[in-house]
Each structure stands twice: as C-alpha cells, then as structure tokens.
C-alpha cells in the first residue's frame, strides 16, 4: 500500500510519519494526553500557539453557541439532501456549503473590521470614531451593515449580546469589540433618528468579533463558525434519515411532507403547446422577436 501523499506541497500546518502526527510542531497524541482541549488544538491549528485560559474559554463558548441553530438554511439543506439517502457526508457537506455571503458571513465581517481598524490606525482615529464612520458610509451607500440583524430573532439574537458580555467578563475585549460596540451604538442611533425599527446585533457581529479578538483571521473564524454548525446539521440529517421517510413526499405520513405536490406554487408562464420540429424555427423566431420571454430570464 502506497503511503505517499496524493499531492506534494510544502506545508506549515502539519506532518505525519509512521511514528506520529504533528501539528504546528506539537505531537497530537501528546496534546491530548497532556489534557489540552479540542478548543486549545484549534488555536494551535490556526494560530500556531497555545491560547490563554480565557481565550480557550471564549472559543469553547463560541463553538458551543454556533453549533446548534435549529432550522436555518444549513439545516434545511442537510435535511433536503438526505431525503434522497445519499451517503451521510453529502448532506453535511451541503450544510456547510450553504455558508456564503448572507448565511454566517464571518469572513466578510472580519474583512470589514480589519479594513476600518487599519483606516483608524492610518488616520489616527479611535475605534469609537471609526465605528461612526463605518455606519455612515454603509448606510449612506444603502448597504446593510454586516453583523446587524437576524431574520428570525427579530428583537435580538439570543446568542449575540451575551457573547459581548462574556468577552468583557473574560477581559479579552480588544480593539475588535471596541469597534463593534461603536458600530452598534451609531447604527442604533441612526436608525432611531430615521424612525426605523430596532435591529439587533447578530451572532456574526458578536461571535466573529470575539473570534478576531482572540486572534483568528477572518477565514479561520468563518471556518470555526460554519464547520461547528456542521455538527448539528449532521444531527438533523441523521434524525431525518433514521426517523423520517425518504423522498419527503409520502402521502402516507400524517403530516404533509416537505416535497408534497400540493406545496408547489407555480408563478411562471401559462401552460402552452410544444411546437413541432416543423413549426419550431418560425415559432422560435417570433418568440425571440416579441421579447416577452425576457421578463422570465433569470
């Protein structure tokens, strides 16, 4: 059996020999034997160093709160995919892949924070001042301020503000939390001035801020959030695989199923005849010329 890697790369993350597996210089087995936690190992993976106890506690808190969020796009994807009964990893992969520009956009929030902190440094401004600038720039441009608002938790995400408080309790409230607090203050004030309803901080605004204050890069933080969610999505997929009926459309189930025909609402073009091949060219020419089809183009 060949034990050669499939691709050759220089890597600073880890190596594996017949004797041991080493990550950032530490033998993984030694780390586990000496009582380090999985959260400690995450710092070593992404930052190459062992965290302080407070930092480790913060990550434990964060990963715990990120993990389960009941029905979000990620869980819905996992449940939909498992309906066809592929191998379980497929459903989990789909759930993690739902994390993009809207669902848990941790990296985007992180890049925004870094950009404005760098500006504060260059322009000699405080995080408090820069928070107002950020809010005004985003809102003047009509763009949503990242980290604010959650479509399901309308009057405040249950995870968000407690995360800020935990960060402060652990005395690891660095420049990121200062900027985030300022963003929230000026965001709320401006919306109030404009007569708009309250929109609270979400778990990205709170959680990603904490992750960055404990040293994770935007992408590392995104990975932590979205992959942690993968565990609960696996549970939701497994529940549906073991307790639910495949295909999600059975008429023998007591409740209407997710893919029941009656749930299809069609709002497209009226039913119409398919032209024969003899009629096709003329039909297609007229259809193209009329331009009516353009309103349906997506």
């Amino acid at each position: 059996m060949s034990r050669e890697p499939m691709i050759k790369r220089k890597t600073a993350i880890g190596y594996k020999t017949e004797e041991k597996t080493v990550m950032r210089g530490y033998d993984l087995s030694d780390l586990a034997e000496k009582g380090y936690s999985f959260y400690d190992a995450m710092f070593i993976l992404y930052q190459g160093s062992i965290p302080t106890s407070a930092e480790e506690e913060m990550l434990k808190y964060e990963m715990g709160e990120f993990m389960e969020h009941s029905m979000s796009p990620s869980a819905a994807s996992a449940i939909a995919v498992i309906a066809g009964r592929p191998n379980l990893p497929t459903a989990i992969a789909a759930s993690i892949m739902t994390f993009g520009g809207v669902h848990g956009p941790g990296a985007a929030h992180g890049y925004m924070m870094n950009k404005y902190i760098e500006r504060a440094q260059k322009e000699g401004k405080s995080p408090e001042e820069m928070g107002k600038i950020l809010v005004d720039e985003y809102m003047d441009a009509g763009e949503p301020v990242m980290g604010m608002g959650q479509p399901q938790h309308r009057d405040g995400d249950p995870r968000a503000e407690p995360t800020h408080l935990k960060q402060e309790e652990l005395k690891i409230d660095g420049v990121y939390l200062k900027l985030q607090r300022s963003i929230e203050k000026h965001f709320h004030a401006r919306r109030e001035r404009e007569g708009k309803s309250f929109v609270g901080v979400n778990v990205v605004g709170a959680g990603n801020t904490a992750l960055m204050d404990i040293g994770f890069s935007p992408n590392a933080a995104w990975c932590i959030g979205s992959v942690s969610r993968g565990y609960s999505c696996a549970a939701h997929a497994l529940y549906n695989m073991k307790r639910g009926r495949a295909w999600a459309a059975s008429r023998n189930e007591p409740m209407v199923q997710m893919l029941d025909l009656s749930l299809i609402k069609y709002v497209g073009p009226e039913d119409r005849e398919v032209p024969t091949q003899e009629e096709r060219q003329e039909y297609a020419r007229k259809q193209k010329e009329s331009g009516e089809y353009k309103k349906w183009v997506i």
Binding site: P5, M6, I7, K8, R9, T11, I13, G14, Y15, K16, T21, M23, L28, S29, L31, A32, Y36, S37, F38, A41, M42, L45
Partner: peptide, 11 residues
C-alpha cells in the same frame, strides 16, 4: 477530536 483534527496531506 484532537486526534481527528489534522492528518497532514491526507485526502
């Protein structure tokens, strides 16, 4: 989970 986290240039 620590032992499962990283395995070099594996699949």
């Amino acid at each position: 989970m620590i032992l499962s986290l990283e395995d070099g240039l594996s699949m």
